[in-house]
């Protein structure tokens, strides 16, 4: 196991370098942010001074070298917008998104296991059909539309939930999480159902059933364990996709998370913050992928030997 893990971590570190390079160059392509940060009537000299002060007049190679040299000492530069350290801004925003994503995925997986199993237990039954239709619909609703409908219906119309924000009791979590949840939940229900149907019709389950094993034990003892692998894989990919959802949700509900930070830093051409944020999400995604692989290896011994990387 130790060898497997080490190999996986080392081979993942190389792509990280490419992520850093990629986001650095992309950010530079969006142009010099001098116009955004200087007064409309700033003189050419003021512009030149601003560029020099922030190193935008150096060649891209020099800028990259400076950045890498800083990053090696965990100094990710200073935000143009706030003047604070980019690293600390990102670390401050990160837990917010991590909590949102964590709770969302936990609920999505648990909910999908329950609904998916119910649907798979009697394929083509009414329950199955309703679950199928609802989950497919849930997976294809635009998230921002869902969020605004949620605010209008539950926030204003029914007066049940706060409209937005991060200050308040547990109820403030409901709408953001519901918005993030719909797509992973819809997709996972279908995955669970699919693999459970497959497992329930597999010979060993049929044998167990014909021996008179309790129906519940069959579902939860045999079939559920068998569907762990595909659910794990898909859940891992869906978690990665939550970054996209977080941008929308945090923008609408005013949550100070990494998604909002990234879109703001793009719009404000705040390169240091954007780079630090993308780097941190990339590291997290790597960690997540490794975690998924480790889980696979734990569940399925074959993976340990056959792992490609």
């Amino acid at each position: 196991m130790g060898f497997f893990l080490r190999k996986r971590v080392v081979s993942s570190a190389i792509p990280l370098v490419f992520v850093v390079l990629g986001v650095f160059c992309l950010a530079r392509l969006t142009g010099n942010p001098v116009d955004l940060y200087l007064p409309l009537s700033a003189t050419a000299q003021q512009r030149a001074e601003f560029s020099a002060a922030h190193g935008f007049d150096d060649s891209i190679a020099v800028q990259l070298w400076d950045y890498l040299a800083g990053a090696a000492h965990l100094d990710f530069g200073t935000s143009l917008r706030t003047g604070e350290s980019a690293g600390s801004m990102v670390l401050q925003a990160f837990p917010v998104t991590l909590q949102l994503a964590g709770v969302t995925m936990l609920l999505a997986i648990l909910g999908a296991l329950v609904v998916g199993s119910l649907a798979a237990y009697r394929p083509n039954s009414l329950v199955d059909r309703i679950a199928g239709l609802l989950s497919m619909t849930a997976a294809s609703i635009p998230d921002f539309w869902f969020a605004i409908m949620g605010v209008l219906v539950f926030g204003v119309g029914l007066d049940l939930l706060p409209t937005s924000g991060t200050l308040g009791g547990p109820e403030i979590w409901v709408l953001p999480i519901a918005t993030l949840l719909i797509r992973p939940f819809g997709v996972l229900v279908q995955v669970v159902r699919g693999s459970m149907v497959g497992a329930l019709s597999a010979p060993y389950v049929k044998v167990a059933r014909s021996k008179g094993a309790d129906a519940k034990r069959v579902v939860f003892g045999h079939a559920l364990r068998n569907s762990a692998t595909p659910v794990l894989t898909v859940a891992g990919d869906l978690t990665v996709g939550l970054v996209n959802g977080a941008v929308v949700v945090e923008t609408i509900f005013g949550w100070p998370g990494i998604g909002k930070l990234m879109i703001d830093s793009i719009l404000q051409r705040d390169f240091a913050v954007l780079q630090a944020a993308v780097l941190l999400t990339a590291v997290t995604i790597f960690a997540l992928n490794i975690l998924v692989d480790v889980c696979h290896a734990l569940i399925d011994p074959r993976v340990r030997q056959a792992v490609p990387a």
Partner: peptide, 13 residues
């Protein structure tokens, strides 16, 4: 023909 998978487990979001 009850045991048809609506969606195969291989699918990805």
């Amino acid at each position: 023909r009850g045991d048809r998978a609506a969606v195969p487990p291989e699918m990805i979001a």
